[in-house]
Amino acid sequence: MTLDYLYTLITFSNIFIILSLSLNVLIGYAGQVSLGHAAFFGIGAYTSAVLAVKFGLGYGTTLLLSVLIGGFFGFLLGLPSLRVRHDFLVLATIGLNFVVVALFKYIDFFGGPYGIIGLPAAKFFGKELGTGGYALYTAFWVVIVILLMIYIEKIYLRYGFEAIRENEDAAESIGVSVPLFKIYAFTISGALAGLAGNLWAYQMGMVFPDDFSFPVSITILTMVVLGGVGTISGPILGAVLLTFLPELLRFIQDYRLLLYGIIIVIVMMYQPSGLLGRQGILRKAFKR
């Protein structure tokens, strides 16, 4: 295993930490299950790719716009969630994922099935970072996102979010504005997925529609569920495990989705709160 390879894995792991934490805002805090999170990831990545390759914009601008546009689309998805509940929302998010990927594929502006290639390396003060530097840079964003999560949890937002997850009617009857909090959750979640998309696009130097297809959404969901919905440490652990394990166990590669399916089933049966959830085995092990 070369050092560069390790750095690349760390970068992927960091990107998926951000993705799973952002999905966790929706599922864990607001109780809104989304099976289409890769759509926002893709929107962020394509925003950066289009702006960098077609318009020649610099890294700072593409980063900012990926976050803003990701957040904007999160906000848009949040609107129907005010009317549609639970199971319908799940279907709507799956649909969204397919629609977004299809648009990337069939609209020439987005490069069609071959995607957009030739993103320049991200430059900071005129310098390129290299694989190690980029891994460190993504780690910096992971730290920022974790701090944001701690902030969200600490500030009463958490209670608003949790109350919604547990019971929307009861939450409303004590003065928690459910619509407002759902919109918050969707916007934050979309913005962070947009950030992850930007980091991904510059890591790969190219974007393809299939990088953001439905199986990727399932991967992110598995990370959150495995680690522990509604915690901060859980999605991080899930993302790290599911990024590194398949690399170590190469023979699994082709059966990745099968593995994720099995993981979800097993976790749901034996560890419904996730490894680091309230009743998780790892949480108990740490407490002892």
């Binding site: 547990e166 009617d169 009861a170 409303e172 009857s173 504005s177």
Partner: peptide, 24 residues
């Protein structure tokens, strides 16, 4: 008004079967 607006005005309900937040 939506329920949360009414709650802000000083109206509150103890719903049937309590409906507390179980995992909190």
């Amino acid at each position: 008004f939506s329920p949360w607006k009414r709650a802000q005005m000083g109206l509150s309900i103890v719903p049937e079967r309590a409906r507390v937040f179980p995992n909190m």
